[in-house]
C-alpha cells in the first residue's frame, strides 16, 4: 500500500511544484538574456539589475515554497476534509505518514538541486563552461570526503527532521478545536524542547573535549575535517529526534485522531 500512497503523493505534489520549476527556468533564461544584452547595450543595465534581484529572490524561495507546500498538503490531506477519505483507507497510519515524509523530502531536495541548476542557467546560460565543472571537481577533491558525506547526510536528516517535527506539531494540534493555533503552539514548544535537549547533551561533550578550542580557531577548509566527530554526533542526535517525532505523529493520529 505504501507504493500506492507514494504514487498519489508524488503526483499531487508535482502538480503544484513543477509549474514553479517551469516559471523559474523561464526567469533564469530571461535573466541570462537581459544580462547578455546589458553587456552590449548600456540601456539594459537597470532592467538587468532589477531582473537579477528578482531571480535571486526566486532561487532562494523555491526550496522554501516547496517546504511550505508539503506542509500544507499534509494538513489538507490528513487533517482537513480530504482526511475523511485518507483516514478511512485500509492502510496503516505508519504508511500514510511515511509516504508523506518520503515524497516531501524528495521534493524539497529536488528543489534545492533545481535552485542551484537554475542559478547556473541564469549566470552561464544553457552551455556550461567546462572550466567551471573542473573547478568544482577540484574543490571537491581538496575537501575531506568524510566531511562532505557528513554534510550531505546532515542536510538530508535536517530536511526530514524539520518535516517530521511539524507533522508532530500538527498531529498534537488537531486534537484541539482550534487546530491551526494549537499546531503553531506545539510547533514552538517542540522546537524549543529540541534545542534545549540538544544543548544539554552537547555542552558537556564540548567541555570534556580537549581539542574543542582547536575547532573554534579552525580557519581553512581542511581544518574543518576535525569537526567530523561533532557533525556525526549532531547527526545521530537529529536521527533520534526524527524517529521520536515520527513515532509520536503516528501514535497520535492512530489513537487520538479528532476529525471534528
Amino acid at each position: 500500500m505504501l507504493s500506492k500512497l507514494l504514487k498519489y503523493d508524488f503526483k499531487s505534489l508535482s502538480k503544484t511544484i513543477f509549474p514553479i520549476y517551469l516559471v523559474s527556468l523561464l526567469l533564469a533564461l530571461l535573466t541570462r538574456g537581459v544580462n547578455m544584452l546589458a553587456d552590449k547595450f548600456n540601456v539594459f543595465s537597470i532592467p538587468s539589475g532589477f531582473i537579477s534581484a528578482i531571480f535571486v529572490i526566486v532561487l532562494i524561495a523555491i526550496p522554501i515554497m516547496t517546504f511550505v507546500f508539503t506542509i500544507l498538503k499534509f494538513y489538507q490531506n490528513l487533517i482537513k476534509d480530504e482526511g475523511y477519505l485518507m483516514h478511512t483507507l485500509p492502510v496503516s497510519k505508519h504508511s500514510l505518514i511515511l509516504s508523506k515524509t518520503i515524497s516531501s523530502t524528495a521534493f524539497i531536495l529536488l528543489s534545492f538541486i533545481m535552485s542551484i541548476l537554475f542559478l547556473f542557467v541564469g549566470v552561464y546560460g544553457i552551455w556550461f563552461d567546462s572550466s567551471l565543472l573542473s573547478f568544482i571537481g577540484k574543490l571537491l577533491k581538496e575537501v575531506n570526503s568524510v566531511f562532505i558525506l557528513l554534510i550531505i547526510l546532515s542536510t538530508l536528516i535536517s530536511v526530514i527532521f524539520n518535516q517530521v517535527m511539524i507533522y508532530a506539531s500538527i498531529a498534537l494540534g488537531q486534537k484541539h478545536n482550534n487546530k491551526i493555533m494549537y499546531s503553531i503552539i506545539y510547533g514552538v514548544v517542540l522546537y524549543n524542547v529540541t534545542q534545549i535537549i540538544s544543548l544539554v547533551i552537547l555542552i558537556p561533550v564540548m567541555f570534556l573535549d580537549s581539542n574543542y578550542q582547536q575547532y573554534i580557531n579552525a580557519t581553512t577548509i581542511s581544518d574543518f575535517a576535525l569537526i567530523n566527530g561533532y557533525l556525526l554526533f549532531a547527526f545521530i542526535l537529529s536521527v533520534l529526534f526524527t524517529v521520536g517525532y515520527y513515532i509520536l505523529t503516528v501514535k497520535v493520529l492512530d489513537k487520538k485522531l479528532n476529525l471534528e
Binding site: 475523511y84 483516514h87 479528532n258
Partner: peptide
C-alpha cells in the same frame, strides 16, 4: 469509521476495534 475515538466504552466491528480490517468492509 475511526475518525474519532470514544472517551469511554467500546466499539466493535465484526468483533474487532476499528482499524485496517474494518475499513476494508465499510464504505463511508
Amino acid at each position: 469509521n475511526d475518525l474519532l475515538q470514544p472517551t469511554s466504552g467500546e466499539i466493535l466491528i465484526n468483533g474487532c476495534e476499528p482499524g485496517i480490517e474494518s475499513k476494508k468492509i465499510i464504505s463511508f
